[in-house]
Simulated assay, not measured.
Amino acid sequence: MMGYSGSDVPRGPAPRDLSQFQPYFGPGADHDERPAGRAFGDTLTQPVAKTAPGQQVTVEFVTGHPRNNPRRGGTFFEIQRLSGDHWLRHADDGDWSTKYHWTRTEPHRSVARITWDVPPGTPAGRYRVQHYGDSRNAAGAVTSFTGTSNDFDVE
Rank of each mutant, 00 (worst) to 15 (best):
P120E: 14
R109D: 11
H131C: 03
P23G: 10
H101P: 00
D117R: 15
P13R: 01
Q22M: 12
N150F: 07
A14Y: 14
D92V: 06
G147A: 04
E60D: 03
N137Y: 06
R11M: 14
T43R: 03
P53N: 02
T58K: 10
H108M: 11
S83L: 14
N69H: 13
P23F: 02
S7M: 02
A49P: 05
Q80R: 07
E60N: 05
P13E: 01
E106T: 15
T143Y: 04
Y100A: 13
V59N: 04
R113I: 03
E78A: 11
Y132C: 00
K99N: 15
G73A: 05
R71T: 01
G12F: 01
Q55R: 13
K50N: 12
R71E: 01
V9H: 10
W96M: 13
R71M: 07
R81I: 06
A141V: 03
S135D: 00
H86V: 14
Y100W: 11
G6E: 01
G28H: 13
E78P: 03
W87Y: 04
P123N: 09
F25Y: 13
D151Q: 02
H31W: 00
D8C: 12
L18N: 10
S7Y: 05
T122S: 05
N150P: 02
F145H: 03
M1V: 09
H101G: 11
G12Q: 00
R109Q: 15
D95T: 12
N137F: 04
N68Y: 03
R109H: 10
A139K: 07
Q20G: 13
Q130R: 14
A138G: 01
P35M: 09
G28M: 14
P119C: 11
P10R: 02
G147I: 01
T115W: 08
M2Y: 11
G37Q: 07
H90Q: 08
H31R: 11
R104A: 08
G41K: 02
T45D: 10
V129P: 03
P35I: 05
D134W: 09
G94W: 08
D153Y: 08
T98K: 09
F76I: 03
V9P: 06
D17Q: 05
K99E: 15
E106Y: 11
F145W: 01
D117H: 15
D8L: 13
S19C: 05
T122V: 06
V111P: 00
A39E: 00
V111G: 10
H101R: 15
V62D: 05
F21I: 14
D93C: 01
G94F: 12
P27C: 07
D30N: 14
Y4Q: 14
H65K: 02
